[in-house]
Structure formats: C-alpha cells, structure tokens
Simulated scan of single mutants.
Amino acid sequence: MPKNAGLHKAGRAKKDEFYTDYDVIQSELNYYEGQFEGKVVLCNCDDPFESNFAKFFLRNFNYLKLNRLICTSYAGSPVTGTQLSLFDDYNEPVTNEHGYVLDISEVPMSNGRGVSDMDIQTLLHSKGVVKRLKGNGDYASDECLDYLKQSDIVVTNPPFSKFRPYLATLMDYKKKFLIIGNVNAITYKEVFPLIKNNEVWLGASIHSGDREFRVPDDYPLKAAGSRVDDNGHKYIRVKGVRWFTNLDYEQRHEELVLYKQYQSNDYPKYDNYDGINVDKTADIPMDYPGAMGVPITFLDKYSPEQFELIKFRKGDDNKDLRYTVDGKTKQPYFRILIKNKKVQHIED
C-alpha cells in the first residue's frame, strides 16, 4: 500500500459544493503521486474557496511538483457574496451569474517547509489570483473548455446527474482524469464500452461501503446516516461511490486469488447465453474456461491481464441474462460476462 509521506493531511476541512471529504481525496491520490510532476491539473467543478480538491492541490502543489493548478466553479457558489474584497478593485457587484477561476503556477510557503492554511488563505485573497469568469463556469462552456484544453489531468467530483456527458467531454478531449461517480455508472451504455476496451477503470481506494458528503444548507435530510454537525453543516452518506480513472496504478494489475473449483450444481447455466452465473466475485471458479456472469462490483478486483471482459447484461437474444432452477426462471441483477484468460490459455 502507498504511504502518506509528503502528502499533507489536513484533517476535516470544509467540503466543496458537492461535497468531497479531504481524506477521500488524499486516500486516492496517494496511488498516483509520481504521475503529477510537471503537469497542469484542472479541477473544473470546484469553487476555489470551498473545494477540498482545490485545497488538496494547493497544499500539495510543491510536493507533487505541479506546473499549474486551475480550479473553476459554477455560478451560485455558497460563498458568493462573502468574498467582496476580491472584486472591489473591479468596480463590479458580486452576483450569482458568474463562476470563479483560480489559475496559479506557484504556491509560496511562508516557513519553507510546507504549505499551511495561512499560506492558502493569503494566496486566495491576493489580488488577481482568483478571478471572476465571464460566464457561469459550466464545465462545458467555451470558456471552461479552453481551460480543459490547457490541462493534463482533471481531478474532481462532477455532479452525478451529469456524469455521462462529463465523462464524454474528457474522452473527446483525450484527457487523463480521476473523477468520482456512482458504481452504477458502469451500467451506462456510454461507459461500459470504455471499461471493456481498457480506456477507463475503477480507482484504487474505494471498493465498498458508503462515503460521507456535505450538502447545501437547504438540502432535506431524510436518509439514514445523515447528520448536522456543531456548525450547522449538513451531511449525508452515499452508497456505491467509486473513483473512475484512466491513470494507471500498480494494484489494478494484481491477479485475483481464486479458491473455488467448478461444480455444475453450484453454478447454473444461462438459458440465453453459453455461460454460467456467479453470484459473488469471491465464488469465481479457478478452473472454468468459459464465460461467467459476475456482479458489476467484480470490477473492483478486475485485472486486465487475468480476465477478459466479454459483454454486459444481455444474452444472445439481446434480453437480460436469465437462468432456470427448479422450474423457476431468475434474472440476476446486472451481470458482466467475463472469461479467465489463464484458464483459457491452458485449455487451448
């Protein structure tokens, strides 16, 4: 496992607009430290004052040896109206009609040993460091796409509702990225082909459970696990969160250790596809040479050297995979059809 050496951990800081915890960001970035040297990083869904993505890269700018950091935010930031001093010299009122941009190539350190909270606050409030955008800061606006063109790696938490078009934009511009989404994005017809073709994969640090996110003050708290902290900030817990990336890391090439042997009684065959159903990733048989339908969470353990991804969800009749046991037909929840390359090689 990677260590936290050098990457400064800043406790529980403020969250971005939706709404990633600093520790969640750091836990994932630890796997990619060496890939950021000399790069231009873009966080294009991130208010410079509120985002923990902005704070993380400001704090670690010098350690990661970044060339440049750009953070853009969408209009309507919760801090709009609280940063009046930044814009007094422009003689313009602060409104919700414009986004902000932070664009820097240097982060000074007052003590020479590391970037402190005071260093970050001083930098953010320096004249000309954070500027008002001409438009609303939408990631797909011409203004923000121009920043995208200038970047090497995009790191952010885009709105889940815009995940498909957001990812498509990154792919269109051939960018490296590390973004947060819901695990069910695997099932999108626009996303699974990218995973199958080894163009996108899941990140290293989140494989199960839920994660806590801060939400706007007017967000209704109805779900279990939601809370309000001592400062009145609201939090919810979100299940099925994953990192999606095209940055490589060592652990994704580690082969899954398999323990079970194939027994026909344990693995029903599909009615509409030549393959067997496997209910749990841990139950994948070590010696089966054919196609196997596994849960989408298999991708948390997927090594492209060990397994081949065949297709998603549908049988030969283009209907959902199904099997029959004791006269009853069952349709398991979304399945990915895979083959074990190692077993296939032996059989051939």
Results as ranks from 00 to 15, higher is better:
Pro2Tyr: 03
Lys3Asp: 14
Asn4Lys: 10
Ala5Glu: 05
Leu7Gln: 05
Leu7Trp: 07
Ala13Phe: 05
Lys15Cys: 12
Glu17Ser: 11
Tyr19Asp: 12
Thr20His: 05
Asp21Gly: 11
Ile25Leu: 07
Leu29Met: 08
Tyr31Arg: 02
Tyr31Leu: 04
Tyr31Val: 00
Gly34Ser: 15
Glu37Ser: 15
Gly38Gln: 01
Gly38Phe: 03
Lys39Cys: 02
Lys39Asn: 05
Val40Gln: 06
Val41Tyr: 02
Cys45Ile: 00
Asp47Tyr: 01
Glu50Cys: 11
Ser51Val: 00
Lys55Met: 12
Phe57Ile: 01
Leu58Gln: 00
Phe61Cys: 10
Leu64Val: 05
Leu64Pro: 04
Lys65Thr: 00
Asn67Val: 00
Pro78Gly: 10
Val79Arg: 07
Thr82Arg: 14
Asp89Val: 00
Tyr90Ile: 14
Glu92Ala: 13
Val94Phe: 08
Gly99Trp: 03
Pro108Met: 07
Ser110Ile: 10
Ser110His: 13
Val115Gly: 09
Ile120Tyr: 10
Ile120Ser: 13
Ile120Pro: 11
Leu124Ala: 07
Arg132Val: 09
Leu133Met: 15
Ser141Phe: 02
Leu145Arg: 11
Asp146Val: 05
Asp146Leu: 05
Leu148Thr: 03
Asp152Glu: 05
Asn157Gln: 04
Phe163Thr: 03
Arg164Thr: 14
Tyr166Asn: 10
Leu170Gly: 09
Asp172Arg: 15
Tyr173Gly: 06
Lys175Thr: 00
Phe177Trp: 03
Phe177Asp: 06
Ile186Met: 13
Ile186Pro: 09
Pro193Asn: 07
Ile195Ala: 09
Lys196Ser: 12
Asn197Trp: 02
Asn198Thr: 00
Ala204Asn: 10
Ser205Ile: 03
His207Asp: 13
His207Arg: 15
Ser208Asn: 12
Ser208Leu: 08
Asp210Pro: 01
Phe213Ser: 05
Lys222Gln: 15
Lys222Ile: 14
Ala223Gln: 06
Val228Asn: 06
Asp229Phe: 01
Asp229Ala: 09
Asp230Pro: 04
Asn231Ile: 00
Asn231Arg: 11
Lys234Thr: 02
Lys234Met: 04
Tyr235Pro: 01
Ile236Cys: 08
Arg237Ala: 11
Lys239Asp: 14
Gly240Phe: 01
Gly240Asp: 04
Gly240Met: 04
Asn246Cys: 09
Asp248Ala: 14
Tyr249Val: 02
Arg252Met: 04
Glu255Pro: 06
Lys260Gly: 07
Gln261Pro: 06
Gln261Tyr: 11
Ser264Leu: 02
Asp266Ala: 15
Asp266Ile: 09
Asp266Trp: 10
Tyr267Val: 01
Tyr270Met: 06
Tyr270Pro: 08
Asp271Met: 05
Ala282Arg: 13
Asp283Tyr: 14
Ile284Gln: 12
Pro285Gly: 04
Met286Cys: 15
Pro289Lys: 04
Gly290Arg: 04
Ala291Lys: 13
Gly293His: 11
Val294Lys: 03
Pro295Met: 06
Pro295Tyr: 07
Thr297Met: 14
Leu299Met: 08
Ser303Gln: 03
Gln306Thr: 09
Gln306Tyr: 13
Gln306Asn: 09
Phe307His: 07
Ile310His: 01
Lys311His: 09
Asn318Gly: 10
Asp320Leu: 12
Gly327Lys: 10
Lys330Arg: 11
Lys330His: 14
Arg335Ile: 01
Arg335Asn: 08
Lys339Gly: 06
Glu347Met: 13
